[in-house]
C-alpha cells in the first residue's frame, strides 16, 4: 500500500465534495481503479456507517479500515478532519460573497453533480450485490418511508436487517 497516495486519494475525495455521501463517487472511482477496494467493501462500509454514531461521513473511516486496517482508518480520519478547517477562511469572507448570485450557482452546480453521481454509484454497487425483486421492493419502500418522514431511518434499517437475516 502506498500510504501517501492512499491519503491523497481520500483527502481529494473529501476536499472536492460536501456532506456525508459527497466523497462516495470520487472514492469509488479511485479505490476501485487502484484495485484497493471492492464493491462489496463499499456496501459493507456504507451499511456500517449508518449504524455508528457521529456524522454520517464516518462511513469513509469504516471503508478505509476494511481496505487498509488501522493505519488506513487513522489516515482517513486525518483526511476527513483537514478540509472542514477551511470553514474558518469561509467565515472570514462569507459576508462579502454570501449574497452574490455566482456563489449560489457554485453551490447548486456542485450539489447537482454530486447527487447525480451518488445515485449512479449506489445503483452500480447495488447491481454488483446481485439484484432481485425483493431488494428492489425494499429500496422502493425505504425511499417512500424516508420521503414521508413518518418512520425514523434507524427503524427502516433495523427492519431491513431483520428481513435479510430471517429470509436467508
Amino acid at each position: 500500500m502506498y500510504w501517501l497516495l492512499f491519503f491523497a486519494v481520500v483527502l481529494k475525495a473529501v476536499l472536492f465534495s460536501t456532506g456525508g455521501m459527497g466523497p462516495l463517487p470520487s472514492l469509488h472511482n479511485d479505490l476501485i481503479a487502484y484495485g484497493w477496494s471492492t464493491e462489496k467493501e463499499f456496501t459493507e462500509a456504507l451499511a456500517i456507517g449508518q449504524l455508528t454514531p457521529g456524522p454520517s461521513g464516518l462511513w469513509v473511516l469504516s471503508l478505509c479500515y476494511l481496505v487498509a486496517g488501522l493505519p488506513g482508518a487513522l489516515l482517513s480520519c486525518l483526511a476527513l478532519l483537514l478540509p472542514p478547517q477551511l470553514i474558518l477562511l469561509v467565515q472570514y469572507g462569507y459576508s462579502r460573497i454570501a449574497g452574490h448570485e455566482a456563489t449560489q450557482g457554485v453551490l447548486d452546480g456542485v450539489v447537482l453533480v454530486i447527487v447525480s453521481f451518488s445515485v449512479l454509484v449506489l445503483a452500480e454497487i447495488m447491481k454488483s450485490n446481485g439484484l432481485d425483486i425483493s431488494l428492489l421492493i425494499i429500496t422502493a419502500v425505504s425511499a417512500a418511508l424516508a420521503i414521508s418522514r413518518r418512520v425514523s431511518a434507524n427503524y427502516i434499517l433495523a427492519v431491513a436487517a431483520l428481513v435479510g437475516f430471517i429470509a436467508n
Binding site: L46, A47, Q50, V119, L136, V141, A146, L157, A160, G164
Partner: peptide, 23 residues
Amino acid sequence: QSALRTVFAAIFGISLATNWRMV
C-alpha cells in the same frame, strides 16, 4: 451477508429520498 444486502437496499432507498430533498 444477506442482512447486509437488505440493509444496503434500504440505504439506497433512504439515499434516494435524501438526494431528492437536496435537488
